[in-house]
Design a binder for these strands. Structure first.
Length: 287
DNA sequence: CTCCTGTCCTGCCGGC
DNA sequence: TGCCGGCAGGACAGGA
């Protein structure tokens, strides 16, 4: 799915197309996404004008001038396409929702696996309920510091890779960027969170920030489904060090060592890492 | 509480 | 060529 960089790229694409423009009509082709689209969704938002487009973690929150708004999550396979002229639009399979804009534009939400979410919120309250009320800090904000992350991890009994995927620990990080950030900070993905020292976390925090920023600047990563809102591909996938690179030489290790990227499975998700430069810490067992 | 497994859904790729 | 299993960027419920 789109992780933070892909969602941010989508948000930026939506700004010129939707912000401060009236939604004239909403077409719901299929309301049965992972969570059914809120009944009455169209009635509350048709005629409204979006005044804010916010990203929080992997979610986009759009707030309108009539005290309503919507929350959008792209799940694993969600995609947003913008057509400046709705006459250029050709209906495609899995186009579930269409936003018609007053200037003739059309915003199309396509999601083959329907793992995404789209629901109505009250503009005043969107962040006061789950998942936002329980969500961890934004990794690109000042609230995400080594001290803050250490605080959240030092009692946690899960492997660090799993902890990074937990949106209550830090928001917006998914499978790709968890793998990449752990590689960049030389931390073995199976390391128990509580076994990380403060100086490990001091490497991890900037590594997470850095990989997310670089990915945003590349328009995100395009694997199977993801595209930018204009249909172009992101290109950060060409910069992966370990993700989806099983058997490839480690970009960090000396060539003479002949070490290659390994793939393991953690909680049914693939993890990619270099066994040479991401050494597992020896854990002192409590007794 | 915390942690892990399975599940939602479709599409694609590789192996036979 | 076709069929089948495995896998995919996420989140959540339910059970241990």
């Amino acid at each position: 799915m789109p992780e933070l960089p892909e969602v941010e790229t989508v948000r930026r694409g939506l700004e010129p197309a939707m912000l401060d423009k009236r939604i004239t009509k909403i077409t719901l082709n299929r309301p049965d996404l992972r969570v059914p689209i809120t009944p009455g969704f169209e009635d509350k938002l048709e005629g409204a004008t979006l005044t804010q487009l916010i990203r929080r973690g992997k979610y986009i929150i759009a707030l309108a001038d009539n005290d309503y708004g919507f929350v959008l999550h792209l799940g694993m396979s969600g995609r947003v396409a913008i057509h400046a002229d709705k006459n250029d639009y050709t209906p495609a399979k899995h186009d579930h929702v269409l936003f018609h804009i007053e200037d003739g534009g059309l915003i199309v939400l396509n999601d083959p696996r329907r793992f995404g979410m789209l629901y109505l919120v009250e503009a005043q309250n969107w962040d006061k309920e789950p998942p936002f009320s329980e969500m961890g800090p934004e990794p690109l904000s000042n609230h995400f510091s080594a001290d803050a992350l250490y605080e959240r991890l030092h009692k946690k009994g899960t492997p660090i890779k799993n902890a990074l995927l937990d949106q209550k620990v830090v928001s917006g990080v998914g499978n790709i960027y968890a793998c990449e950030a752990l590689f960049d900070s030389h931390i073995h993905p199976e390391t128990q969170s509580f076994a990380l020292q403060h100086d490990d976390i001091e490497r991890l925090v900037p590594a997470i920030r850095d990989v997310l920023i670089r990915a945003i600047n590349s328009g995100g990563s395009s694997l199977r489904d993801y595209k930018q809102t204009d249909g172009s591909l992101g290109y950060f996938q060409h910069s992966f060090s370990v993700y989806d690179r099983e058997g490839a030489p480690c970009p960090n290790c000396d060539e003479s060592k002949n070490c290659v990227v390994e793939r393991i499975v953690q909680s049914n998700r693939s993890t990619f890492f270099c066994p040479a430069c991401q050494k597992k810490k020896r854990i002192q067992k409590k007794r």
